[in-house]
Amino acid sequence: MMYTFYLEKDSFLHSLDPRTKIIGSLSAMVAVLLFNHPAVMTALFLLILIAGRVLGKVEIGEQLKFLKPLLPLVILTIALWPLIYRPRTLGLLFGASFALRLLTLGLITILLLATTRQRELIRGFVKLGLPYELGLTVSIGLRYIPTLYILANNIMDAQKSRGWEVEKGNILVRLRKMSAVLIPLIVASLRTAHELSIALETRAFGASKKRTFLRDIKMRRRDYVALILILLLLGTAVYLRYSLGVGYVRIYG
């Protein structure tokens, strides 16, 4: 079962310092947000998929499997845009491109998590200047995405057993129907969060201000090389977008 995203592998991405990977992921996200042309979005998505396979040794199928929970949102995005935007064909195109943007952002996050252990991630956030509490919160939040996904599936099964079907009705009816899943999901998550906070406190979390770490992280040569490459790529993206006006279509007005 998929309880965590982390995949134990011996790859280039795994060997990088968490800071490099955090900066790389953020840069990739910025790059994704710069463009909105469907063709460019498709290219970026494929590029990251391949990068994950080649540099992170995460199978394409595995990456896509992790993205599956985003499917309902993706379908909703593609379905809603043509309803709101005229002409409809263009709306559909934008819907598709926003859906791809969503998938690409998801993919970047997943690759970061699949190639970085949770404690290294926290360490990375802290070394980048984030307070420890915040670093812990962010990485716990990310850590719980798969757990939530399993929980949501379980709740959906329970409701299906009561004759509940998402497939029936128009979008509004469907959204209303989602409350049968969302409410138990929220209740269960709040409970988990509460239990987690108790667990942290019983282990004296926050008792000492100065934290020490068992394993320290270190930037190596490959990290600096990677960072230079990342910044070059980001610079190119910004140049393409703002100086050449590539890959962006005006949506409003």
């Binding site: 057993s161 009561r162 004759g163 049968a180 409410i183 138990p184």
Partner: peptide, 17 residues
Amino acid sequence: LSRVVGYVFQNPEHMFF
């Protein structure tokens, strides 16, 4: 099938809303 086979899930709270 739920008209014929009823399934009571392990955690009741997972169904209350």
